[in-house]
Design a protein around this nucleic acid. Sequence first.
RNA 1: GCGCCUAUAGCUCAGUUGGAUAGAGCACCGGAUUUCUAAUCCGGCGGUCCCAGGUUCAAGUCCUGGUGGGCGCACCA
Length: 570
Amino acid sequence: MKRFADEIRAAIAAATGIDASEVRLEKPRDIAMGDFAFPCFALAKTLRQAPPAIAADLAGKLNGSFSKIEAVATGPYLNFKVEVAALSQAIIESAIEGGLSYGKSDEGGGRKVVIDFSSPNIAKPMHVGHLRSTILGAALHRMHALLGYEPVGINHIGDWGSQFGKLVAAIARWGDTVDIDADPIPALLALYVRFHDEAEGDPTLEEEARAAFRELESGVDGEVRSTWRKITELSLAEFNKTYERLGVEFDLVRGEAWYEDKLEATLERIQASGITEESDGATIVDLSSIRKKMAPCLLKKTDGTTLYATRDMAALFSRQAEFDFHRLLWVVGSDQKLHFEQLKGVLKRMELPWEPACEHVAFGMMRLPEGKLSTRAGKVVFLGDVLDRAVEEARKTIAEKNPNLPNAGAVAEQVGVGAIVFNDLKRERIKDVLFQWEEVLSFEGETGPYVQYTFARTRSILRKAKAAGEDTATTKVAPDWAALEDARGVLLAMGRYPEAIRTAAADAEPSHLTQFLLGLSRETNSWYANHRVLGEAPNITAARLALVEAAGSVIEAGLTMLGVASPSEM
RNA sequence: GCGCCUAUAGCUCAGUUGGAUAGAGCACCGGAUUUCUAAUCCGGCGGUCCCAGGUUCAAGUCCUGGUGGGCGCACCA
């Protein structure tokens, strides 16, 4: 695909004198017009000619230099159509050869991309709101790896801070009223909620909590620390079950606590750069020079303990020193935008040249029809429940549509979880999401199961072809590539996959890929409706089989990038 | 109050660095299966692209000012 575009660009460059890299090719409005379009408006001024005249003129010049491409002037546009045999063979072969690595490139050159994602808080259950960071980060990790970067996925667990003082205090008081070992997360959540309820009428609780956190931060290895350690371990074990279901892995699981012994050096480093000041007894960095009225960054409280920003600065310095990253992606909700702007603001004031490499990959908030998510107020949908219900729904659909499916249970898991994951990656990440059961449990239309279904059908055809002895390996018939004219939409879609991956990674926007997959699936399904693969003339069947194999291969590659399974039957 | 984000069909959303007649899905109506999975396909219905100015040969896209919604704004994370 790219080589045809490059050929066209080079020819236009030669004919007009503009640089080949400046030639921008678009997608024609209608596929019947061609595969690539070049608008001639921009040339009108320099050539002192009307765009349609330029297009007509260029068409004449270019057609002489192409062998497999035809240029047609349509008004102010110059449209290009690649000979179908050349197009289909090139795209199908590269898609099939690419396999799951289709779109692979070495543009990353092994440079490191640190991706900070998921980051749940210890002692709280994961809810639907945690899903987005987890699967966005995992998808970005896979895409960067494909593009030749060396991604470093870090789970920056929220395991530090004054809230743990509260939890420790609550356990000290009421730990024997709940069974933490049996089902740790709900038990810890109950204690946390109780703390907040009772702290209002009992100020000694807050004092105990502060004392506990002070002890934790002092480094003393006593009762408090051992309680904290236990909470952390139990929570991590719980989180891992969810990660396993989602197919998510991390290169490093490092909680905020991991940076504990780096806090002092971090503060010293920032102070040494001369940008800190005292304000009401706290240590801050003024950021009004970064943006008018931007809130200052607080690094140390009046009582001497550290804050979220202090720990994130420590993490940042540590990662920069350890990985010397090309990019650092914080995959964290948009509600924390200011926090990351502040971190970047501190870097700017320190005049650190790697500041632009740090990006906040913000995503919109998940809301329920009844309002904002709140674990404490019980307004919450737990992630495990969402996955379970989707899987149950998938199980029912399978029982109804394909009752003899082998491995029905495993496929239901793949389809149900796939539906949830795909749905969450479907729209632009910055957009807020209203969580609605009927939407996430829907398997029709623009959904993960729709894409999975398209793939399953490609596999089904390949299976039947093999059984009938019609697959290319058996028949050794040369495919009639020219017979795929009607599949041009499918071909062009497949050809755009590498670019979809590239922009998805560059913009840290996996929705480019989900949208791509929906488009390819639509083209493929639409083509199926009007064309038979099996039982046609051998060279036609061979070409169509290759098309089906390639389309399935690209879909599988894309779903794999997203962390969605591709069952071969469903 | 200030800052950031967002607004496209009844609903949920696409719409490349500004380019040809603004596209899907859901819902609703009507069709398609003796043959490769109907979790599909085809057709119909449905639009002052929030409003008002501006820049441009060209604006859903860029700029300015409004309006609605979301998020945030000092010792929580």
